[in-house]
Structures are given as C-alpha cells and as structure tokens.
C-alpha cells in the first residue's frame, strides 16, 4: 500500500480546491441561499406544509442532495480529467501506485469536498428554516454514501471524457434533471398516479427520499429500499471502475 502516494494526490486535490475556494464553496452556498429565498420564502410562504413539515424545511434535504450530487460528479470528473488534458497524468501512471489507490485518492478528495460543502449548506439552511434531524447517523451515512458514489461516477466520467463538452454533458443533461425530477422540491405523492410510477425509475428519488427520512421521518419509498438502491449504485460504479482498471480504458491504450 502506497500511503504516501495516496496522501500526495489527496493533498494535491484539496490544495486545488483551496486555490479556487470561492468558486468551489462560495458559489454553491450562494445558489442554495437563492433557492431558499425564492422557493422557501417567496413562493414557499404560499405553500402549506408538506406532510406536516413546513415547505422551507422540506426543501433542505433535496437542495442539499442537488449540490452534493452535482458537485461530487463535477469535482471528481474534473480532478481526473485535467491531468489527462494537460498531460501530467504520465506521472501518476508511472508511479508505484495501484489503480485502486489512485481511485481512493481522487474519489476520497472529491467526496471530502462534497461532504464539507453539504455541511456548510446545512448550516446555511439552518439560518433560514427551523431544522430537525431525527436520525443524525443515518443522515451522515446518506451524506457520505452519496458523496462517495457520485464522486465515483464523476471519476468514471472524467476518464471517459476526451473533451470539455463531454465533461459537462453528464452533470448538465443527466444529473441535474434527475435531481429536479427526483422529488427535491416536491413529494412524489403530489404527482398524478401515472407520473408517480414513472418517477420510481429515477434512481435519485431513492436518495432524496432516504435522506429526507433521516431528517423528518417522511419518505416516498421505504428507507430499506433507499439504502438498497444507493448500495446498488455504488456497486455498479465500483464494477465500472474495476473494468477501467482491467482494460486500461482511455488511460493506457
């Protein structure tokens, strides 16, 4: 095990984050605040409570997931794409470090950033709405599992992408719609029966539902199903990463 190597990459990634702290931290906080102002206060004041929770508070887990997912994916994707793009990847490929260790370092760094970001958003939210976290451990578990799984997905995208457009396309065209349509801003029970069934095909629904349950004990799907879904997603990402490692896809061909 090359601990120094993993640590070197992890630290490098965190330093890159620190250099662009404003972009990486302040801008998601600002956009989340805007969501609260617009949806929580302006529009939310006209919406009665959802399943016994005020609409502003109901929004928090969904908004948190929105940031967590998009930031995990784009952070991890950019982290591995950039060295490929400028060519500094040569050093990582020629180092006595295993592919799994490289993944640990990049995904670990991206997930750490997302988790910090999530906690900051949570703190920001608590300024606007009364927060209640019924199951703090489950909340942290969901936070970490989601950050790790979507950072893995981002890593895969970063390996796959061979231009900047591809790097942007998945977060923009896949992740964001899935999060918006996965019940970030509404409860699935508000939808007509047909769309309720369609929404069940959206994997992000299970994440948001489980996460919201850890706050308010209300959920669209049973909590066990949520945990199973995220585990499945994590396993799928790990399988793809393993395949990339085996074939040297886009890295060593």
């Amino acid at each position: 095990m090359n601990f120094h190597g993993v640590w070197a990459i992890y630290r490098f990634e965190m330093a890159r984050w620190a250099r662009t702290l404003f972009q990486s931290l302040v801008s998601p906080v600002i956009s989340t605040t805007l969501y609260f102002v617009v949806f929580g206060s302006a529009i939310g004041s006209r919406i009665s409570s959802v399943e016994g929770v005020s609409y502003g508070a109901f929004l928090v887990p969904g908004l948190l997931m929105l940031s967590l997912l998009t930031q995990s994916v784009s952070n991890a994707a950019f982290g591995i794409y950039f060295p490929k793009f400028v060519g500094t990847i040569y050093e990582i490929l020629s180092a006595p470090i295993s592919f799994i260790e490289v993944v640990m370092a990049y995904v670990g760094a991206a997930a750490s950033k997302s988790i910090v970001l999530g906690l900051i958003i949570l703190a920001t939210a608590s300024l606007f709405v009364p927060l209640r976290i019924a199951h703090p451990f489950a909340m942290i578990l969901f936070l970490v599992l989601t950050a790790v799984s979507f950072s893995l997905l981002g890593f895969i995208i970063g390996i796959w992408a061979d231009n900047f457009e591809k790097l942007q396309i998945v977060p923009l065209l896949v992740i964001t719609p899935l999060v918006f349509l996965g019940g970030s801003f509404y409860s699935v029970s508000m939808l007509p029966a047909f769309w309720q069934k369609v929404t069940l095909l959206n994997p992000v629904l299970y994440l948001i539902s489980g996460f919201r349950w850890s706050f308010y004990e209300i959920s669209d799907v049973p909590i066990g199903v949520s945990i199973a879904m995220i585990s499945l997603f994590l396993a799928a990402c790990l399988a793809i990463v393993w395949w990339i490692f085996k074939t040297g896809y886009r890295l060593k061909s």
């Binding site: 120094h4 190597g5 070197a8 330093a15």
Partner: peptide
C-alpha cells in the same frame, strides 16, 4: 521519467511539485 512534452501543473510551486512527486512514489 522526464517526458518529452513540458507537462506541468501550472499553478503549483516548484517545491510543491517536487514534494508531490516524491510522495507519489511512496
């Protein structure tokens, strides 16, 4: 390995990048 292309981390300091290399190699 010293590669042919001048591929460097533009924003890193010289000391930072050589320290990174040493760590990366375990």
């Amino acid at each position: 390995l010293v590669p042919q292309e001048l591929t460097t981390d533009a924003f890193e300091s010289v000391w930072g990048t050589v320290s990174f290399s040493r760590g990366l190699f375990g």
